[in-house]
Simulated assay, not measured.
Amino acid sequence: MTSHIARNYAPLPVEIATGAGAWVNDVDGRRYLDMLAGYSALNFGHCNPTLVKAATDQLARVTLTSRAFSSDQLEPFAAALAKLCGKDLVLPMNTGAEAVETAIKVARAWGYRVKGIPDGQANIIVAENNFHGRTTTIVGFSNDEDARADFGPFAPGFTTVPFGDAEALAAAIDENTAAVLIEPIQGEAGIIVPPDGYLTAVREITRERRVLMIADEIQSGLGRTGETFACDREGVVPDMYLLGKALGGGIVPVSAVVADEDVLGVIEPGQHGSTFGGNPLAAAVGHAVVDMLATGEWQERARSLGEHLANRLEPLIGHGVTELRCVGLWAGIDVDPAVGTGREIGERLLARGVLVKDTHGQTIRMAPPLTIRATELDWAVEQLALVLRK
Rank of each mutant, 00 (worst) to 15 (best):
E261K: 15
T225C: 12
D232H: 10
Q219D: 11
A259K: 08
V254W: 06
P269I: 09
L242Y: 03
V237G: 05
Y241H: 12
E227N: 13
A246L: 10
Y241G: 06
A256E: 00
L212M: 05
P195N: 13
T225V: 11
T206V: 06
G226S: 08
I267F: 13
R233I: 09
E208Q: 08
D216Q: 11
P238H: 06
P195A: 01
G197M: 07
A259T: 09
A230H: 05
R233Y: 10
A230R: 03
H272V: 14
E234A: 07
V211P: 01
M240I: 12
A201H: 12
K245N: 10
P269M: 13
V202H: 10
V257Y: 02
E208H: 14
M240G: 02
G235W: 07
A246M: 09
G249V: 04
A201Q: 13
E204Y: 00
L247D: 02
D216T: 11
T206R: 02
V254K: 07
E261H: 14
L264G: 01
I251F: 04
H272E: 05
L199Q: 09
V263M: 10
C231N: 09
E268K: 15
G221C: 12
C231Q: 03
S255P: 06
G221R: 01
T225W: 09
L242D: 04
V254D: 03
V252I: 14
E208Y: 11
G244I: 03
G270P: 05
G223I: 01
V258M: 12
R224C: 12
T228W: 01
G265D: 12
E268Y: 13
E227R: 14
A230E: 03
I251G: 03
I218N: 00
L243W: 02
A256H: 05
A259C: 15
L222G: 05
R210K: 14
F229C: 08
D262S: 14
G248M: 03
M240T: 02
S220N: 12
E261Q: 13
D262E: 15
A230P: 00
T200F: 01
G244D: 06
D262M: 13
H272G: 14
G223P: 03
G221M: 11
G235T: 09
I251D: 00
R207Q: 13
K245C: 10
L264N: 00
E268S: 10
V236L: 09
E217M: 03
V236D: 07
P269E: 11
I267N: 08
G244P: 05
Q271A: 15
D216R: 12
G265Q: 06
G270E: 09
V211W: 01
G250C: 12
S220F: 05
G223K: 07
V236H: 14
V266S: 07
L247N: 00
R203L: 05
R203P: 03
V254F: 15
